Amino acid sequence: MSSLQCPATLLLVGAPAPSPGVRAQAPAELLERLHPRRVASVWSSPAAYAREAAAAVAATTGGPVVVRTELSPVGDGERGEDVVHRLREVLQEAADLHRGEAVVLVTHTGPLEVGLPRLARMAVRPHPLAAWGLVELEVDEEWWCRAWGVAHPEDADGAPTP
């Protein structure tokens, strides 16, 4: 990667698994936070509830939806290093394809909590990521986590939001 290229902004959303009989839907607050952003593409886990959320984000931001298995939840018996590897691969691909642009990736809290502190420099304090938490990752020569589960990506202290 060259410093002559613009960084990519990856907006990662931790989609919660639905409770039995209840469908998880992207809350209006999340859609409002993403609406003003210029989003080039929306990538999603193959889980049905994540795809539904990605479709809602895409309808709000105008980006197409791309489904990627690397954004799946942490599997039974899956090792942390395997989660980190698959997350690194898909995030790097999204960043390489969208230099100077923003991409929303709808994944799950597990891969984010396991992988990002190992992959990125943390400019914020990571804490357990709430359902629909938004994480902002800037990818250039280095990876920087600029916001973690905050109400607005500009609020970069990483403190949990009510």
Results as ranks from 00 to 15, higher is better:
residue 6 C to S: 13
residue 6 C to A: 07
residue 10 L to T: 07
residue 10 L to P: 02
residue 11 L to A: 15
residue 17 A to T: 14
residue 21 G to R: 07
residue 24 A to N: 04
residue 25 Q to Y: 11
residue 25 Q to N: 08
residue 28 A to C: 07
residue 28 A to I: 11
residue 29 E to T: 11
residue 32 E to K: 06
residue 34 L to T: 00
residue 34 L to H: 05
residue 34 L to F: 03
residue 37 R to C: 12
residue 38 R to W: 06
residue 40 A to K: 00
residue 41 S to A: 09
residue 41 S to F: 08
residue 42 V to R: 02
residue 42 V to F: 03
residue 44 S to P: 02
residue 45 S to T: 10
residue 47 A to M: 14
residue 48 A to L: 15
residue 49 Y to E: 13
residue 49 Y to A: 13
residue 53 A to D: 08
residue 55 A to R: 13
residue 56 A to L: 01
residue 59 A to P: 14
residue 60 T to L: 03
residue 60 T to W: 00
residue 63 G to F: 05
residue 64 P to L: 02
residue 64 P to Q: 06
residue 66 V to I: 14
residue 67 V to N: 03
residue 67 V to Q: 00
residue 69 T to V: 07
residue 72 S to F: 08
residue 72 S to C: 15
residue 74 V to R: 09
residue 75 G to Q: 15
residue 75 G to L: 15
residue 75 G to I: 10
residue 76 D to E: 13
residue 77 G to E: 06
residue 77 G to P: 09
residue 84 V to G: 01
residue 86 R to M: 15
residue 87 L to R: 04
residue 88 R to G: 10
residue 89 E to I: 11
residue 90 V to F: 05
residue 91 L to K: 01
residue 92 Q to T: 13
residue 93 E to N: 10
residue 93 E to V: 09
residue 95 A to G: 02
residue 96 D to L: 12
residue 99 R to G: 03
residue 99 R to A: 13
residue 100 G to C: 01
residue 100 G to E: 03
residue 101 E to V: 10
residue 101 E to Y: 02
residue 102 A to V: 14
residue 103 V to A: 00
residue 103 V to F: 01
residue 103 V to W: 03
residue 105 L to D: 00
residue 111 P to E: 01
residue 118 R to Y: 10
residue 126 P to Q: 07
residue 126 P to H: 11
residue 127 H to W: 13
residue 127 H to F: 11
residue 128 P to A: 08
residue 129 L to Q: 04
residue 130 A to V: 03
residue 131 A to M: 11
residue 132 W to T: 01
residue 133 G to D: 08
residue 135 V to I: 13
residue 135 V to E: 02
residue 135 V to A: 05
residue 141 E to N: 12
residue 142 E to N: 14
residue 148 W to G: 05
residue 148 W to H: 01
residue 151 A to S: 11
residue 151 A to Q: 04
residue 152 H to W: 11
residue 155 D to M: 14
residue 157 D to G: 01
residue 158 G to F: 04
residue 158 G to A: 05
residue 161 T to K: 07
residue 162 P to I: 01
residue 162 P to N: 10
